[in-house]
Design a protein around this nucleic acid. Structure first.
Lengths: 361, 361
DNA sequence: ATTGTATAATTGTATAGACAATTATACATA
DNA sequence: TATGTATAATTGTCTATACAATTATACAAT
């Protein structure tokens, strides 16, 4: 016991700090009995009242638990704090794309364990994400599920650091950021795009345009998968029919792209839209131009959003499951399970509807 | 000072209880200075240590604040707790209908004030709502926005009582429950349906079917508006073309209703769907049966969901605004503004697209 | 087998007193 | 005007002590 009698730091506070250290370093483990107050009096040569003051503070802080007649024990904070945990989720916009599905998955899993989920909409903006990050830190949430924004990797890293500096674990969902020691969970966009492209090739297509936003790792991965599938099937990659955009998703912009692409006289037989909302714009554009899908041109999307009135062949992403799994991951971190950062890739599967026609032979 | 020296209740605890009472009854008001420890020693004839024990507990509980040299003061808990408040929202399902829009409105308003929103999905089930209510109470949320479930009024009342018993204010959103002293905010469904029906009548329709679920106050109000509009225009209400259902919304069921109604040989010229998701089923059914909307029959919906591919004339509900306003209401209650329960009705407006044809002259 | 009783260990409650640290205020000094 | 200093009120820290309440355990009585 190293208490400095002459230090300006109060004795009770020294003792309290020492105790916390011992607990956090695992010298006193959960459920361990710490010395009795009488023993502490002998050990420290302080009065019992002072001992009690230190111990009482730790009880209030949730480190210790007193049991009459038995002594004072270290609480298993992990189990304890595991009740009624609050987790934050940072998604672009709860109104669009897969966000509702993701939120629902996360919420269901949280609710199952009596935890709660705080919703934050970033609109894919760094400033907004930063604002919410501050708020969540103020609220002392126990963990965060973060869908990185459309901002640069560096800026997204700032957000994550904001949390980790405050000992709040983070799980990245859907999109990743390179070289970062945090858990992340994505769908296998490379494999999915590969499968989808291969499907088109099998259907006889070999002039397949791709249109996507390069802003997100997800779509860049899809582009990789698309190119790889073409290459593996001996079809040269034609950069002139790969249309990339690096600004946030705006319907009108993609509607115009779609119209341009559909009007352009070329021998395209199929279009691979980077995600379903892009595909939707193609439907609308095609409708406008009196082009029939799949009769005149085939179309595939990616996401499997619930479009009730159009019958789009697309990759179904297990978004609900992603929500569930990210919550499981973050809860494991909150419980303090220390492993290497996990990189989970969920499998997507192809949903064949009627936007692709067999061509050629 | 009434302390019972002989009571088995500890002196410090008696003092502490008495102090809380004084504070909560407003005898000691926020920012008031309470007697100094020395004064308490005189008043109570207890030792200073005992006084301190009671006061320290109240400090820990957030009732009091010590200031060296100045004394001990009552904290203004309202102002204090007004920062970083957490509000719960109970909606049917974040994935469907207007829920995302409502949640977004509420979240934006909350974020603006540095508050946070906990998301709960009830699936319109009482048991689920009850579960979440318990969870939110455990978390000590400061207020709740509640979209009543499809269960009976009595059961929804139980949920609300659960909150009010714990001094958690509640705002009802979208749907109402009769005879309840809580704030609520709805759109004016009567007026909206009246406007919509009148619109159809002006377009020459006088044989207008209505199909709806009677489970929710919203749709029952719409039915009232529909009937009133007919009556006011001298059109007799024909109960045989009013199709009601009182089970939760299931797409298949309504698809079948739609098919039956569309197949039935009658002189219907227009259909008023209780909400957009019902209208969507009519689109799908019509498509199946090769019936063109609006050429063969006109259709209106209610909600203005974001259907990208169909062009439905419908009532736009200011759902985002409803989210914002319910958050404002609940925050006002949390701040302790005591008024009569407010009943706010937001105006909807008609969005004319192309699902209604002019008939007759 | 159940119920009651004594014991002892430990925390819980309480007293009386002492000195330290902090800080608003007033006053003094540069 | 700005800065330093003394004062006094109040909370902060700490000692030494005493008895009460709680309860696991062992053992006795029924």
């Amino acid at each position: 016991m190293i208490l400095d009698k002459n230090s300006p730091i109060p004795q009770y506070f020294q003792l309290q700090t020492w105790l916390i250290e011992q607990i956090e370093q695992g010298v006193f483990k959960p459920n361990d009995k710490i010395p009795t107050e009488a023993e502490f009096v002998q050990l420290t040569e302080l009065s019992r009242a002072t001992i009690r003051q230190a111990v009482q503070n730790l009880v209030n802080m949730g480190y210790l638990e007193r049991k009459k007649r038995l002594g004072t024990f270290v609480i298993n904070r992990k189990i304890d704090s595991n009740k009624n945990t609050i987790v934050g989720i940072l998604i672009p916009d709860i109104r669009s794309g897969y966000a509702p599905e993701l939120a629902r998955g996360a919420e269901d899993e949280a609710a199952k364990n009596k935890h709660s989920l705080i919703l934050c909409n970033t609109d894919d903006l760094f400033t907004s994400a930063e604002f919410h990050a501050n708020r969540l830190t103020d609220h002392h949430v126990s963990g965060v599920i973060f869908v990185p924004t459309a901002a640069s990797d560096a800026k997204n890293r700032l957000i994550i650091e904001k949390f980790t500096r405050n000992d709040i674990p983070v799980v990245l969902a859907d999109r990743t950021i390179p070289d970062l020691k945090v858990d992340h969970i994505t769908t296998d966009n490379f494999q999915g795009a590969y499968t989808l492209t291969e499907y088109l090739i099998r259907k006889g297509h070999n002039k397949i345009a791709m249109i996507l936003s390069t802003l997100f790792s997800t779509e860049r991965e899809r582009l990789r998968g698309y190119k790889q599938a073409l290459t593996d099937h001996g079809i040269p990659v034609d950069e002139s029919i790969i249309l990339t955009d690096n600004s946030p998703f705006i319907e009108m912009r993609y509607l115009n792209y779609a119209k341009k692409l559909l009007k352009r006289p070329n021998d395209l037989t199929a279009i691979f839209a980077g995600h379903d909302r892009i595909a939707l714009q193609f439907y609308l554009a095609a409708n406008d131009l009196n082009i029939k899908i799949p009769d005149h041109i085939s179309l595939v999307g990616y996401d499997d959003l619930h479009f009730n009135t159009i019958s789009l062949t697309t990759m179904h992403q297990p978004i609900y499951e992603m929500g569930v799994e990210s919550m499981k991951l973050i809860l494991a971190r909150i419980r303090g399970e220390k492993k290497e950062p996990q990189k989970i890739k969920l499998k997507s599967y192809l949903v064949e509807r009627s936007s692709v026609k067999q061509v050629g032979t």
